[in-house]
Amino acid sequence: MATEILMPALSPTMEEGTLAKWLVKEGDTVASGDILAEIETDKATMEFEAVDEGVIGKILVAEGTEGVSVNTAIAIILEEGESADDVAAAPAPTAAAPEAPAATTQEAAPAAPVAVVTPAEADIPEGTEMKPTTVREALRDAMAEEMRSNEDVFLMGEEVAEYQGAYKISQGLLDEFGARRVIDTPITEHGFAGIGVGAAFGGLSPIVEFMTFNFAMQAIDHIINSAAKTLYMSGGQMGAPIVFRGPNGAAARVGAQHSHDYATWYSQVPGLKVVMP
């Protein structure tokens, strides 16, 4: 029986992607593990491997196609003895199938009374020029802007530099600012949070990234006892001008250790300011 190859989800947040390049053509024999195509997700270009073996019978989505939804059939693999003509006669691939129940859920949700919260327009000065961007890019641009205007601002955390950010927030910062100011750390939250606070005591303005705020639980002592309380305990003589940043709160299908919302916890602590988009 012919097997459909479906557009894969290559990151937890990917809903669609670009089929950048096919590395096989119709008639090629493929084995499990062979690279079939390059697919661009919202964060990176990834290689896509074959799971099943057989012969590429038909390519359904041409390379260069953008906006291919996850789970769309993109090609068909034939078993021995099958021909591409048999497949052509078969009913069209039903990529839409999983969408049906999802759509129902979405319609059901707003049935409950929902107060539609519109952003406080008053906070935006009149005449402000608006520009479409993603939250990811906005965060990156904000950091880059601060780093350009203040030599004492630097970024440290896990995978912030060479990997370009676990969630790609720091994409491009290493190239622009170099390894002195964009610093990969070992996986050691307690330690590097403390080093960040110490650097702030020493007159720098660090940005410390946690891959998620769940991991910052290892570092919460430095966030609260070392950073937040020092300005008060020194009678205003010195504090810790530092930004701890990272994703916080609900995340899809990653379990309770990766989806806790700590905003209210930290909001209780004098000396901390909590900002959550």
Partner: peptide, 18 residues
Amino acid sequence: IVAAQVPLGAGLAFSDKY
């Protein structure tokens, strides 16, 4: 907080190296 000053001290040294 016992030992908190150790990474803090390393951070002070970081600021001087920076």
